[in-house]
């Protein structure tokens, strides 16, 4: 039986202020580092708008934010977060700590509860105790600290893979041994690259390019990243936490 009320009163066509611009983001926390990555394709429907539109942004030397969903909202949201962090720096003469940025983001998202930013955020970086951390958010600000998280178009492809490879779900350690609670940086980087090549293979909205941000805790050596091709440092200070970015190609079809 069709819904008669809908037929008797056809609804007026409304302007839709949202779009879905594809792409996927992902972050993994290590013991003393965090990796935050996103692809660079921006699409609408079946059209690729551009092959290079960054979704991952350095906020401070110890915080990196990845945004995914509606691109206009994402860009505006990052702009506003950066503005708030700048105000904080002028007021307190230091960068905002990561957990405070996470709470700030939740407040800013919830402030738009009834006209939300259609954006899934993943914040990664280094906590004040020097540990790697990942915070993931829904569009209206519900958030959680985790060890790893994927979001966006290929979330359903990538997240179960991370469950298996990062959390060792459904794997039993050899007798007398246990799974590591944190993986070393080179392992994490290869899992990130594998996740994105897999997602590119099976999801049309993922591809073109990959940007991987690496945040290292204060005093941590470059062990595990020193030989990487095309590594670029973005940190403003040498004696604090350090931020690096790596760019890799993904398939463009």
């Amino acid at each position: 039986m069709p819904n008669m009320s809908a037929i008797v009163h056809p609804q007026q066509r409304h302007f839709n202020p949202y779009a879905e611009n594809g792409g996927t983001i992902l972050a993994i926390a290590g013991a003393d580092f965090t990796v935050i990555a996103g692809d660079t394709r921006q699409s609408e429907g079946y059209s690729i708008q551009t092959r290079y539109a960054p979704k991952v942004f350095r906020l401070t030397d110890r915080a990196v934010l990845a945004v995914n969903g509606f691109a206009a909202d994402g860009n505006m949201f990052v702009k506003k977060v950066k503005q708030r962090l700048e105000w904080y720096k002028h007021a307190h003469a230091k960068d905002m700590p990561l957990r405070a940025i996470a709470r700030l983001i939740q407040t800013m998202l919830y402030a738009q509860r009834f006209f939300p930013y259609y954006v899934y955020n993943i914040l990664g970086g280094i906590e004040e105790d020097g540990s790697g951390a990942v915070y993931s958010f829904d569009p209206v600000g519900s958030y959680e600290r985790e060890a790893c998280r994927a979001a966006g178009a290929a979330q359903s492809l990538v997240q179960p893979f991370l469950d298996n490879q990062i959390y060792f779900k459904n794997q039993t350690a050899a007798p007398g041994r246990s799974h590591p609670s944190h993986l070393p940086l080179p392992d994490v980087l290869s899992i990130v690259v594998d996740s994105f090549t897999s997602a590119t293979e099976r999801h049309i909205e993922v591809g073109d390019g990959l940007e991987i941000y690496i945040v290292l805790a204060k005093g941590r050596s470059l062990q595990g990243v020193e030989g990487l091709h095309g590594l670029r440092e973005l940190s403003t200070q040498e004696d604090g936490e350090r931020v690096f970015v790596l760019q890799r190609d993904l398939k463009k079809d």
């Binding site: 202020p17 949202y18 779009a19 921006q42 708008q49 551009t50 691109a71 206009a72 860009n75 505006m76």
Partner: peptide, 12 residues
Amino acid sequence: LFVDLLSVTYTV
């Protein structure tokens, strides 16, 4: 540059 009605922007 490109801008559309939803303010989706990009450069190519």
